[in-house]
Design a binder for these strands. Structure first.
Lengths: 234, 234
DNA sequence: AAATACCAACTTCCATACAAGTTGACAAGC
DNA sequence: GCTTGTCAACTTGTATGGAAGTTGGTATTT
């Protein structure tokens, strides 16, 4: 989203809850509101000049996405990033996207391969001259494209909530790891698809999605108080 | 859940929203509240002798699970079951549980195989003398057991919301299809695990989870107004 | 008869007041 | 010093009134 609504004061006319939901979700996922931080209904009510009720209902939605946790009579807190949630999301994505890439390879036409080549090339350009957030957007678009080419356009939507903790990790560690490695892996996947080798394409995809298993321990070690369930790593 | 709280009148002391959330979710998933049915805040507020606010907040949670849809100033309605959601959930489960069964086969000890044999046997017993709901519970427990044996205990929890539409389908069609076929497939999966044949076990699992692709068109045809997005089937 | 204007009865949305429980500071007593 | 009791200031939870918008029936007008 643009930061037109992040001046902490004005909301557009119309329903308040959907707007606030998007704003606060973005602020949490990008790390503007940090894991463990205490928030409160009155705090945002004053900041955005609205009543407690819409803020409260926004908190309920954020809680369903595991972005905040509401402790009755005690307070509401930005959740720390759950390591098991990240690992589980990764495992699910590996299984699902392996199947997607197998189907996409079977369906691959020269036209599809060309579009994927263009996508990878744009990633290279953005990695050099763009922001980490822009590269992240392109990365997600690439995986969504593969799903579309496999005829599984909906999969991305239904796994959206699952990917939230993964995105949080990437946002707080955007500058710690270079995108070059990821781009090279994307290119390898496309190459195997070009050769109509579904098994090899699947293996490249699985290896690609296993990367975070290697990075995660370092990220956790660098920001231990942003995470919970860290004992799962050992 | 027990039906101790389904007398439409009394709730236990304590927080109201969590109780009402469980009650209404159960009533929708089991088909007591039917797809497309109109509901309203005041309706349940009167029925349970509470104010509109807790009902409203419950609706928000149900909406996040795609069990109701809130149309501002127009009303709240029990969602019709989304055919694309069912098909996508099935696809995701096939990919994930195939991987799970592969890992579980690699890890399979005689002790694990014995536990799975017992589970299948209990399914046979319940299929004969139990209720469809009880069998459904055992079926879910079986798949959860496999995830545990693969060291992926969390997967079931994180895919819970995804499975909701699938469970709705099974509840409205519980008597239309016999469980014998499913039990036989469970047995085949365990047999391949016993033989330490991960590839065959995976294939049996995939075939098992593809069953709903065959049943779904008939269920939709028998209850067309319980579904939406039915054109996806053609 | 048919189209239109009106309006009463509904709905969800938001604001506000109060209820109920938690927490931490601070003073009293051991 | 250390424990304990008190209580004020917070938190979220619930109730209720009114605002804003939709809907469908009913007169009114053409």
């Amino acid at each position: 989203m643009t930061d037109s609504n992040r001046d902490m004061t004005t909301l557009k006319d119309g329903a308040v809850v959907p707007q606030l939901h998007l704003i606060l979700r973005d602020r949490i996922v990008t790390g503007d509101l940090i894991p463990g931080q205490r928030v409160s209904e009155t705090e945002f009510a004053k900041a955005y000049s609205i009543s407690r009720q819409p803020v409260r209902e926004t908190f309920i939605k954020l809680a369903e996405e595991d972005l905040v946790v509401v402790k009755p009579q005690r307070g509401t807190f930005v959740t720390r990033i759950s390591v098991p949630a990240v690992l589980t999301a990764r495992f699910i994505r590996e299984a699902v996207e392996a199947d997607i890439v197998r189907i996409a390879t079977d369906r691959a036409t020269p036209d599809i391969i060309a579009k994927l080549d263009i996508a990878v090339e744009q990633q290279r350009i953005t990695a050099k001259s763009g922001t980490p957030a822009e590269f992240m957007q392109l990365d997600q678009a690439f995986h969504h494209q593969l799903a579309e080419f496999a005829g599984k356009r909906d999969v991305t939507n239904y796994l959206r909530v699952l990917n939230i903790p993964v995105n949080r990790v990437r946002n707080i560690s955007a500058r710690q790891f270079s995108p070059d490695r990821l781009i090279a892996q994307h290119a390898k996947i496309v190459d195997e698809m070009r050769k109509h080798n579904p098994t090899a394409a699947m293996e490249q995809m699985r290896a690609h999605l296993r990367e975070i298993n290697i990075d995660l321990p370092h990220i956790v070690k660098a920001n231990p108080d942003f995470f919970e369930g860290t004992e799962t790593l050992s």
